[in-house]
Simulated assay, not measured.
Amino acid sequence: MLHQLILILMGPIFWVQGKYVRKSIPYLEEAEGPRHGRCGQGKKPLRVLLIGDSAAAGVGAKCQSQALSGQLTSTLGKQFRVEWQLIAKTGNTTKQVLQSALLHPKQMYDVVVISAGVNDVTKPTSATKWIQHQQTLTNTLRSHFSCQHIILNEIPPMEVFPSLPHPLRWYLGSKAKAFNRKLAKWVDTQPDCELVNIGGPLDVVHMAVDGFHPGPQIYQQWGRAVAKLIEARWSSHR
């Protein structure tokens, strides 16, 4: 409610600043390279689906090996035989991620990793409505992919994004925190879901040149954090 009120009061300023940001931020392509594959020499098979937005697609990294998909699967490959698939597109909101999932053929995955939220924060979407979208998405993933483990990612601290001017930066950062609080509270009620914490403050030096997306070092940190959750749950899983 608070953020909706602020949006009404400061909407014209945010509109002008948003228009400036869209023109000033350099456009970065999604990371090159395969979006599915097999890797690893471990004894246990593991099927992993990554789904989401530009961060899932690896914007800010030159190739998928430097992006989340490559960092995650290379880490998991030390312990598992990983079969993986990436479904991601720049600009995707949570509702669009859901649509992408439904367009993908039904098949079984053990783990699904979701990256979605930044594009919802930049839209006039409330935290309550966003959680409803997240719930619909996770329920769809359960039924469509028979997954047993769903990993959701916190929205990054947008209040430190160098590409965003104030007060827009403050507003989006505050809204992202509100989204994350509701997400954490909901995830705690879902036994098959976990919320990844990359750990430590975001080092803007390691962000991509657009000041909005992760760079390779952040993707590495992120991939290892996700892998740690997967390994903890699946190392002893038969």
Results as ranks from 00 to 15, higher is better:
residue 163 S to Q: 09
residue 72 L to P: 00
residue 114 I to N: 07
residue 61 A to V: 02
residue 102 L to R: 12
residue 73 T to M: 00
residue 127 A to C: 11
residue 93 T to M: 08
residue 84 W to P: 13
residue 40 G to V: 04
residue 97 V to I: 10
residue 199 G to T: 05
residue 66 Q to G: 10
residue 67 A to M: 05
residue 175 K to Y: 04
residue 138 T to L: 09
residue 61 A to E: 08
residue 155 I to V: 13
residue 213 H to S: 04
residue 37 G to Y: 01
residue 56 A to T: 04
residue 89 K to H: 14
residue 41 Q to M: 14
residue 131 I to L: 15
residue 212 F to Y: 15
residue 42 G to D: 09
residue 125 T to C: 12
residue 176 A to P: 01
residue 168 L to N: 04
residue 183 L to D: 02
residue 17 Q to H: 08
residue 65 S to C: 06
residue 140 T to W: 05
residue 220 Q to E: 14
residue 224 R to D: 15
residue 115 S to N: 04
residue 74 S to P: 00
residue 79 Q to K: 06
residue 103 L to K: 15
residue 221 Q to V: 07
residue 19 K to R: 12
residue 23 K to H: 06
residue 135 Q to K: 09
residue 53 D to F: 09
residue 219 Y to V: 01
residue 145 F to T: 05
residue 29 E to K: 12
residue 120 D to N: 09
residue 87 I to N: 07
residue 149 H to A: 08
residue 1 M to I: 07
residue 124 P to Y: 03
residue 228 K to W: 11
residue 76 L to P: 01
residue 162 P to H: 14
residue 66 Q to A: 15
residue 197 N to S: 10
residue 153 N to R: 08
residue 108 M to S: 09
residue 219 Y to I: 07
residue 140 T to Q: 13
residue 78 K to N: 00
residue 93 T to E: 06
residue 233 R to Y: 08
residue 197 N to I: 08
residue 117 G to V: 00
residue 54 S to F: 01
residue 132 Q to W: 10
residue 123 K to Q: 11
residue 132 Q to L: 13
residue 12 P to F: 03
residue 135 Q to D: 04
residue 17 Q to N: 04
residue 195 L to Y: 04
residue 190 Q to V: 02
residue 13 I to A: 10
residue 106 K to M: 08
residue 84 W to S: 10
residue 191 P to M: 05
residue 182 K to C: 07
residue 231 E to L: 12
residue 156 P to S: 14
residue 213 H to P: 08
residue 159 E to Y: 08
residue 196 V to C: 01
residue 186 W to S: 07
residue 50 L to W: 03
residue 162 P to T: 11
residue 28 L to I: 05
residue 137 L to V: 04
residue 40 G to C: 13
residue 190 Q to L: 03
residue 228 K to S: 15
residue 112 V to T: 01
residue 189 T to S: 12
residue 204 V to W: 14
residue 186 W to A: 11
residue 5 L to R: 14
residue 205 V to I: 09
residue 185 K to G: 03
residue 55 A to R: 03
residue 205 V to K: 15
residue 91 G to F: 14
residue 17 Q to L: 07
residue 230 I to H: 02
residue 30 E to F: 03
residue 164 L to H: 13
residue 133 H to N: 15
residue 163 S to H: 03
residue 53 D to Y: 06
residue 114 I to Y: 00
residue 153 N to A: 15
residue 25 I to D: 08
residue 226 V to Y: 12
residue 70 G to F: 00
residue 27 Y to W: 13
residue 91 G to R: 14
residue 39 C to P: 04
residue 232 A to F: 05
residue 188 D to T: 09
residue 107 Q to W: 08
residue 238 R to V: 09
residue 222 W to K: 10
residue 197 N to Q: 12
residue 46 L to C: 07
residue 41 Q to L: 13
residue 100 S to I: 11
residue 100 S to A: 15
residue 43 K to F: 04
residue 183 L to Q: 10
residue 62 K to S: 12
residue 195 L to E: 01
residue 15 W to E: 07
residue 197 N to P: 00
residue 181 R to I: 06
residue 17 Q to T: 09
residue 141 L to P: 04
residue 101 A to I: 06
residue 204 V to F: 13
residue 119 N to W: 01
residue 110 D to G: 05
residue 114 I to H: 01
residue 150 I to A: 06
residue 136 T to E: 15
residue 107 Q to N: 08
residue 44 K to Y: 05
residue 14 F to T: 05
residue 25 I to T: 11
residue 129 K to A: 14
residue 211 G to M: 11
residue 81 R to Q: 14
residue 206 H to Y: 15
residue 149 H to V: 03
residue 59 V to Q: 03
residue 232 A to P: 04
residue 124 P to R: 07
residue 61 A to P: 01
residue 41 Q to T: 13
